[in-house]
Design a protein around this nucleic acid. Sequence first.
DNA 1: CGATTCGATCGAATCGTTTCGACTAAAGTA
DNA 2: TACTTTAGTCGAAACGATTCGATCGAATCG
Lengths: 359, 359
Amino acid sequence: MDETASTEAPRPNLAAVAALAGVSASTASLAFSGAGPVSDATKAKVLAAAAQLNYAGPDPRGQSLRRGRSGIVGVVLEDSVSEAFRDPMNIATLDGISDAIGPSGSALLLLTDNAEGPSSFRSVPIDAVVLIGCSTRLADAVHVFAQRGVPIVGIETEPMPSVLAVDLDNRLASRRLAEHLRDLGHRDVTMVTLSLDAPHARGWATPEWEARSEGYTASQRIAGVRDVFPASSAFVSSASTVDEGYRAALEVLASSERPTAIVAQSDLLAVGVIRAAQELGLAVPNDLSVVGFDGVRLDGIAPIDLTTMVQPAFAKGRAAGEGVLALLAGEAPAGQLFDSEFHLGATTAPPQSARTAHH
Amino acid sequence: MDETASTEAPRPNLAAVAALAGVSASTASLAFSGAGPVSDATKAKVLAAAAQLNYAGPDPRGQSLRRGRSGIVGVVLEDSVSEAFRDPMNIATLDGISDAIGPSGSALLLLTDNAEGPSSFRSVPIDAVVLIGCSTRLADAVHVFAQRGVPIVGIETEPMPSVLAVDLDNRLASRRLAEHLRDLGHRDVTMVTLSLDAPHARGWATPEWEARSEGYTASQRIAGVRDVFPASSAFVSSASTVDEGYRAALEVLASSERPTAIVAQSDLLAVGVIRAAQELGLAVPNDLSVVGFDGVRLDGIAPIDLTTMVQPAFAKGRAAGEGVLALLAGEAPAGQLFDSEFHLGATTAPPQSARTAHH
DNA sequence: CGATTCGATCGAATCGTTTCGACTAAAGTA
DNA sequence: TACTTTAGTCGAAACGATTCGATCGAATCG
C-alpha cells in the first residue's frame, strides 16, 4: 500500500474520506450514520476509504454543533468528588441517573460546585443537567442553563421555576421519626443535621444561621422535627460521615442538658453518634435513642439495626434520568415526590425517665 | 422595554448580539473571550446587547468545534457507576484526577465499560481519557481514541503503546506481603483476588482462567505472591467489597486444607475475610493471618488495624491528571510508577504450628 | 511636521458534520 | 409506451463560534 506523500498527517476528514471513496460528503455521512438509504456497495467503499485513511468516524465536535446535541448530561454535585461520593446516597442516585440515561447513549459529566471554577458550568456542552441536592447559591448557574435552553432537573433542590423537581418527603419523614420518639415518651430531642452552607461550618444552629441556610434538605428535615418538638436544638455537622456524627455527638452529649434522643439527618451521622455514645458509656437505646435517615445498607460499616427512614435513592436517580430524557424529547413531565419508609430498628426505646416512672 | 416582534424566539447568536451592538461578530467574540484588545465602551455595548437578547454567552458546541477542544476529560471505569464507586480507591483516584485537571477548567466525563453501550465511547467529545484499572478488552476503545488523537492515560492498565502509564508496584508490593508471611513462618497461603474478568465470575482460579485474565492488577498481585509461594492457590472474588471477602473466605476456610494465612487483594476483601474467620471461630491473627491491600481508612468500617500495603491512590489520580494536562500541552511526559508502603498491623502472626514448635 | 507604532475593529476563512431539497436512473404500473 | 414511484446520490446551506491578516485612526517619537 502506498503511503500518501503529504509530509504532515492532518487528521482525516469526512470530506477526505468521501473524496477518496469517490462519493460526496453527504453520502459518506449517511454511510456512517446509517440514516437514509445508501447502497451496500457505496457503504463498503466509504468504509474502505475510512480504513485506508485511518479515519475513526465522524468527529463528535462537528456532530454536536450540527445536531445541537452532545450526548452529555451534566450532574452537579455539591462538593468535591471525594466528598460527594463519601455519601452512599449520592452514589445510589448517580447510579440511578446513569441507569436511566445509559440506554439513550448519553454519558454523565461530573460538575462540582466548589467555589474555584464556576467557569466550567458555562463552557461545557451539555444537553441537560441534574442538580443533586445543591444549595441555593446555584441560582445563577440555574439561570445560565435556563437561558441556554438546557433542561434542568433538581433532586431535592429548593423549588425553582424551570427546574423539574424530583423530591423526597423530607419534612414529613422527619416528622414521622420525631413522632416515633415522642410516642416512646421522649421530650428532649436534639438534632445532628447535614451541612447548612457551602463553607461546611460546624456548630450549634442559631436562628440566623438556619434562616440563611443554603441546605434545602437539611432545613426541611429540621422543620419536620420541629413540627413535633418545636424547641429542639440542632447541631450542624459539616458532612454526612460517621466521623462527623461522632464529633457532633461528643458536643451534644457534653452539653449541660443532655437529650434523651438524637435525630441524626443521615445514617452515617447516626452511626457516628452511636459510636460516641458508647464511648461515653451511654447504652443505645437504653440511655440514648438514636434515629438516622436514608436506609443505607450498613452491612459493611457497622452491625447496627438503625431506626431510620428508608429512602429510594436509586429510584430518585432513575426518575431524574427519565425526567431528563422526557425534557429532551420535548415533553413536559411532572415533578415527582418520593416517599420514605419508616424502619423500626433497635436503636430507639423509651427514655430512662419514662421507664423509671413506669416502675 | 419593547419586546422584539419576532413571533418565535430562536436562541440568540453571537452574530445576533454583534448586530444589535453594532459591531462585528469577531469583536463580539473578543468581548466575551477577553483575548485581544477591546475598548471598554464596545465591551459594554456588547454585554448590554447580550443582556437584552438574553444571550447566555458563546455556545460551547461552536467553541469546541472551532477550538478543537471541548474541555472534557473522559474517565473510563470498569463497571457500572455504583460498582466502581463502592471501592474507595476508585473514588480517591477520581478525586486526584479531578484535583489535577480542575484548575484547567476541564470537567470529568464518566464512561462506564459495561457491555451495553460502547457506542458512547465513539460519540463523545473528549480531549483526553483516563482508563482506571480497565481490563484488556478495552483494546479496541483504546484504538479508537488513539486514531482520533485523543491522549490516553492508563492507571494500572496493561502496558500498551500510545497509553501513558500510571502504575503501581503491584507485583513487588504483593511479594513484600508474602515475604512478611513467609518470615512469620507461614507455608500455606491462599489468596482472595480481585475480579479477573468482565462477567465477574467467582470461584477457585484455574491455570486457564488465570491465563486469560483481563484483570491486570489482579494478575500482577497474584504473580507477586507466587514469587514467594509458587504453589499458593487463589479464590477469585467478583468485586472488591467486604461482602465478597466474606463469601470468599467462607469457601477458602471450608476447604479441606485450610491455609494459615490469607492474602486478600484489597482491604475491603480483607475485612470480609476477617469477619468470616471470626464467624467460624477462628481468631485473627492467632488462628489465621490476614493481609490486605490499599491502605483504605477503615475508621468508619471496622476497628481493625490491618497489615497491608498502603498505596497512594490520590497521588496516582493526580499524576494521571497531570499526565493528561501534559499530553494536551503537547509534551511527552514519562509514565509513572508509584510505590506502596508496608504497614504492619495486628492481623498477622506466626502460624499455630510455628508457635507450638517453638515451645 | 512626517514617520512609526499601537490599539481597536472588521472581513473572511475555517472547524467537521448533518440535512433538506433536488436530481437521476431504474423499477413498477396502467 | 407513458407515467408514477422509489432508491441512491449529490450540492449547498446551515450549526456557532474563533482567529489571522488587513485596515484605519490616533497617538508617540524624532
